[in-house]
Design a protein around this nucleic acid. Sequence first.
DNA 1: TCAAAAGTGTTCAAAATACACCCATGT
DNA 2: ACATGGGTGTATTTTGAACACTTTTGA
Lengths: 250, 250
Amino acid sequence: MQKSIFSELNPNISVSCVTLGFSNDEIKVLVNVANAKKKKTASTEFSLPESLIQSDEALKECAKRILSDFTNPDKVYFEQLYTFGGLDRVKKHDDEWLRLLGLHTDERVISVTYFALLKPDLFVSEQSLFDKHTEWISISELPHLAFDQNKIVEKAVSELKKRLKFEALGIELLPEKFTLNKLQILYEKILNIEFDKRNFRRKILNSGLFVTTGERQNDVTHKPAEYYKVDKAKYELLRKGEFDLSFVNF
Amino acid sequence: MQKSIFSELNPNISVSCVTLGFSNDEIKVLVNVANAKKKKTASTEFSLPESLIQSDEALKECAKRILSDFTNPDKVYFEQLYTFGGLDRVKKHDDEWLRLLGLHTDERVISVTYFALLKPDLFVSEQSLFDKHTEWISISELPHLAFDQNKIVEKAVSELKKRLKFEALGIELLPEKFTLNKLQILYEKILNIEFDKRNFRRKILNSGLFVTTGERQNDVTHKPAEYYKVDKAKYELLRKGEFDLSFVNF
DNA sequence: TCAAAAGTGTTCAAAATACACCCATGT
DNA sequence: ACATGGGTGTATTTTGAACACTTTTGA
């Protein structure tokens, strides 16, 4: 962050982003690592990307600014999650982070959190992440994060879970084209349950939300799977509440 | 509000409350009326109860302080809804309201909104509400509210709708004892659909969440209905996610 | 005896679940 | 030829939806 931005920051309001992704069949979250260039120790400090808000900046713009560090915020699904505003938050803060953020322990800070879902093609490269001290960490092995951020991540994951059923939100984590098997694994990882392959496929296809691309895998050492994509028109209707997925019960 | 409180207010953060109730078989919302003592005109100003936050006050405490004007905040169900933080909000503000709140049009304000569900026995009297310039208004005939508050009310109602199915949240709007018919009307008004009486009763009773009190209506000019109540233990589990209502599909 | 709401069961259609084998590909 | 994941159908059970009459009370 440049000094010129710092000078306009509102010291009472910050925005944090929980960014979720799906790679190697795992749901992952993007975190900053304080001492990424040293080797990780018990005291390695992980934290969510965040920033104080600028005086003339809408909350949503602030979230975009944070996301723009590692993706194209205009192509990413994100929305507001929750606002944390207890008085005890600041006292729990790690001094190093406070300094990084330009905060004083005697100021009350409310944190507006956003959650973002990244399709794999919007990932920045691992090298670029490394340069930024940023890493993908699987939510099943999440370390302790700064402040009360573990709660925030939990909330984001539980929101994703809730909205998978009626809004099929999980597809925001998949590339444009995907096999039904990847989709099933995604659902299984988010919901933490396993599905029967035949029943899963039937329900998915009956929903009418997915259509085949006609393309198939190649260079795989087994029967190549067909690639599917989302029916964009139906997905739009679904997000607007004008299309009902409720007959598909996972 | 006293001056001593004003002096500690943070001018950038406000809290608003959407308070919902159920009376005369209608879902209602509690609003402040600017000129309650004059007769209502097209220019009558309605708005949600709100306040700037005090510098040393948690968001939740601020919501409680607002609610305490017309109910006992310790006995009321309430939770955070959404945070509005666009830059255009202030410019839309009505000057009179700005003055009441002690705001300046050139300050950015983010509004953290809460929604509260009041059981009928926690209502303050109509007279007391009148003295406070506060009224219950049916959500089906909601007038224009100040700022962007109509959106906030819509969001609260849609949250209630979403969570009726899996968390049975609607019962926070009912008294301790209620007939299954009242429960059905409540569900119908929230979801805006009608149910078959027999199917509704079967599903409700199969859910295991409701138990009979053994008491019946008296002084009614028809067959007296049985009073039911919530099985508190199961309701607790439900709220914690450890009890599943998903087999009851409304 | 009338009006008004309470309470109660069955039938039919749709959806969920459980379950096992053959297929296409690269090596 | 084999290892790997892809792809398919049926039978059973469970759940949802539609539907109409009798009961109890106060006036």
